[in-house]
Design a protein around this nucleic acid. Structure first.
Lengths: 264, 264
DNA sequence: CTTGCCAATATGTAATAACAAATACACGGA
DNA sequence: TCCGTGTATTTGTTATTACATATTGGCAAG
């Protein structure tokens, strides 16, 4: 059983590029939405609905740009967007290929997270705590404020169709500490922040695992000491100021994180 | 204690831009390395070593480009690179600001072995199993081969300074099944793949948590049922063919995943 | 028949130009 | 004094052009 040395002995990868004239017709030129964004969205949809099957090749970018009447940089930017998302792969001198709707779907099915949010499960929120507390040194450092300054501490239980999913703990800086429990029960923290004009731009997350505390276990309907998936996060806005810190723990059977990495 | 409504009442954010003439001088114009890449690297270093402190402002991109003698698109591309990494934030009509000096390891296409050796720990590897097995339906689907086809199954124990860190399970497609246990003990899977000319481009990862099995627990030096952090991964090369699948579990006290998200 | 080279192809890098849109600040009027 | 408006500043979007470089495959010479 001597294996040949070429890594790929499958995927004939049809050489003839897919026609995309019909997918990319009729762009909105009013300038309300960037052209590259419209093109990227259409391409993403074409991959999702099978118009661009896995392994198929795109026409070369110069011809594509010409065909739909945009410049090459604009076309490149749209394609690059999909490359960054891991949907396309490009090789100099070769061309651009679709890399995988099949596996993507498979992984998504194994994650209840996507299922829950997308397939319309009823998610509810219970606000367990909601109070002003002096910022601990750790929280103060993350929020970029002075230790001891008053911050709003929130603790919520998130349920999906009545099943406990996660315990969410957040700290909010002084400027945002007038958010009410009622708002949080119906809207979700991020919707509230966006409605207040806060533009969140950068988030730094750390994902880990630990045992559920005696405190969390009954809330989540699991045994104390059972594993939970944890995620801590600091979110920054436009001006580089931190807007929120969160420290959440999830029931691992019901929640996973999915990430696509691309080597550039 | 009425909070004012502006979200940021901290971070004076000095208005005068930082001089960068000295940081960006003397670029290599021979074309061996792209200009935008050199500029991005210099800027990243300047942020890391404090030349560009958190909250400081960059000179506007037109002036910067002029000063160092590159075009605005080139300068923009370099800056955008840092924005994508979450190190800079830009706002139209305002300017570009540094958002974080803290060195944070970006989640990238690298292996655990490389991460650890880079940070100066002595990592060792024990190959627990190494055998050809018929591909299960799940593995076959991930690797894009026929179920039952022979794949190389590897199970390794990774230690850092002698302390058990993770149990790594991998499946490799037929073209790569001639990797030896000896290679794996000294090199790490990713180094071997790269040396064989495999160019890994896209990875899809799922991160979760579960209880350690009775099998894993003694290997990792933890109790059966104790929480472990899990990561499953499928890696694709630049032709869209999958190169490797892995299913790993980590001791959560010793390993976490860090991710930076950027809203574009 | 094999090997090496060359040309065609496609993406990668870079410069230049012009206009659009968001923001901030200063100025002027009520 | 306060508020609104206009203007300067800065990034965002798009087009055009040119050349560089990696890859593939065919062709010719040995």
């Amino acid at each position: 059983m001597q294996a040949d040395s070429t890594p790929a002995d499958r995927a004939p990868t049809d050489r003839t590029p897919i026609e995309l004239g019909d997918v990319l017709h009729d762009l909105d030129r009013t300038g309300h939405l960037p052209l590259y964004h419209q093109i990227a969205t259409r391409l993403r949809e074409a991959i999702a609905d099978g118009t661009l099957p896995t392994g198929s090749r795109l026409e070369n970018e110069v011809a594509l740009a010409e065909r739909i009447g945009v410049s090459r940089p604009t076309m490149r930017r749209a394609i690059q967007d999909l490359v960054d998302r891991g949907l396309l792969v490009r090789r100099r001198g070769v061309g651009t290929q679709v890399v995988g709707a099949r596996v993507h779907r498979h992984l998504e099915l194994s994650s209840l997270h996507e299922d829950l949010t997308r397939s319309g499960h009823a998610t509810t929120t219970q606000v367990l705590r909601h109070e002003l507390v002096p910022a601990s040194p750790a929280v103060a450092s993350q929020l970029g404020i002075a230790p001891g300054a008053p911050v709003l501490y929130i603790r919520r239980l998130r349920l999906s169709d009545g099943v406990p999913l996660a315990v969410l703990e957040n700290h909010l800086p002084p400027g945002l500490s007038d958010i009410t429990p009622e708002q949080l029960e119906e809207q979700g923290l991020y919707a509230i922040l966006r409605n207040r004009g806060v533009s969140m731009r950068v988030a730094r997350q750390t994902i880990g695992a630990r045992a559920a505390t005696r405190d969390e276990a009954p809330l989540l309907g699991i045994a104390a000491g059972a594993p939970v998936l944890t995620m801590t996060r600091v979110v920054f806005d436009d001006s580089g100021a931190s807007v929120e810190t969160g420290s959440h723990c999830y029931v691992p059977d019901l929640y996973t994180f999915e990430i696509t990495l691309v080597e550039r």
